[in-house]
Amino acid sequence: MTRPLLISGVLLLAGVVHLLPLLGVLGAARLEQLYGLRMEDPNLLLLMRHRALLFGLLGLLLATAAFKPAWQGLALLAAWASVLGFVLLAPSGLLPALQRVWWIDVALLPFLALASWAYLSAPRTS
């Protein structure tokens, strides 16, 4: 597999993973299904819907960067911040739905490492 193809494939994969929570914008029922948490507090619902929107924007950036090499460095950095941030911030004893999210992020880490290596070791043109 060529470096550009590897980078693009990982960015597409990370983009899809980050686009999935966008469905949470639709409301409490979808968020409860995604995360296994009750969304009874309207303030929590607002925050989680906003989080879903931001994940959608991040997913769009990642997926778009798969086809725009000039964006790939920024997109990889954003993916690392999102994925590693959640993995490191998550406490033990998560609810099953959140534990699934944690494992998905853990599974993305080696792919991000490979894509980052491919990106950083690729020859640069001025």
Rank of each mutant, 00 (worst) to 15 (best):
G59C: 10
P96I: 00
A118W: 05
S116Y: 00
L23C: 13
V106N: 01
L120K: 07
L76P: 11
L95P: 01
Q33K: 10
L94G: 07
L22G: 03
P96H: 00
L120R: 07
R3F: 09
Y35A: 12
M39D: 04
A52C: 00
A122L: 11
D41Q: 13
L46F: 15
L54W: 06
S116E: 03
L112H: 07
L74R: 00
L47S: 11
F111E: 02
L53V: 12
V16R: 02
A75K: 04
M48K: 04
S126I: 07
V16C: 09
S121C: 06
A75C: 05
L34R: 00
L98R: 07
R30F: 09
R49N: 04
A122W: 12
A122R: 15
F55M: 00
L112Q: 05
S126R: 13
I104K: 08
L112C: 09
L94E: 10
L5T: 14
G93A: 06
A63N: 06
P123V: 08
A97W: 02
L94M: 10
V83A: 00
V16W: 09
L5Q: 15
G24Q: 09
G85V: 05
F67K: 11
I104N: 08
L31I: 06
R51M: 04
L94C: 07
W117A: 07
T2E: 15
L89S: 04
L44K: 13
L11A: 14
S116K: 05
I7G: 12
L94T: 06
G9H: 10
A28M: 14
M48F: 10
L53T: 07
A78L: 10
Q99P: 03
L58N: 01
G9W: 12
P123I: 06
L77N: 06
G27I: 01
L95H: 04
G73N: 02
Y35S: 11
L11G: 14
P96F: 03
G59Y: 08
A70H: 01
M39T: 04
L19A: 08
G15M: 14
A115I: 01
I7R: 13
E32W: 08
R124T: 08
W71V: 03
A75Q: 01
R3T: 12
L88C: 11
L74A: 07
L34S: 05
L84K: 07
M48L: 09
T2M: 13
I104A: 13
L112R: 02
Y35R: 07
P96N: 01
L26W: 13
G15Q: 10
R124Q: 12
Q99E: 03
L94K: 04
L31C: 07
A70L: 06
L5G: 13
L89E: 01
G24H: 08
L98Y: 02
T2R: 15
L20R: 14
S8I: 08
G93Q: 08
G59T: 04
T125G: 04
L57F: 06
A97R: 14
L112G: 05
R3A: 15
G85Y: 09
F86H: 02
P42V: 13
L26Q: 15
L58T: 03
R124M: 09
H18N: 15
L84Q: 10
A52F: 02
A115P: 02
L31M: 09
I7E: 14
P42S: 11
G24T: 09
G36D: 00
E40Y: 07
L19C: 11
G93K: 01
N43R: 15
Q99A: 03
M48W: 07
A115K: 00
G24V: 12
L45E: 02
L95M: 03
I104M: 13
L13V: 13
S116R: 04
Q72H: 06
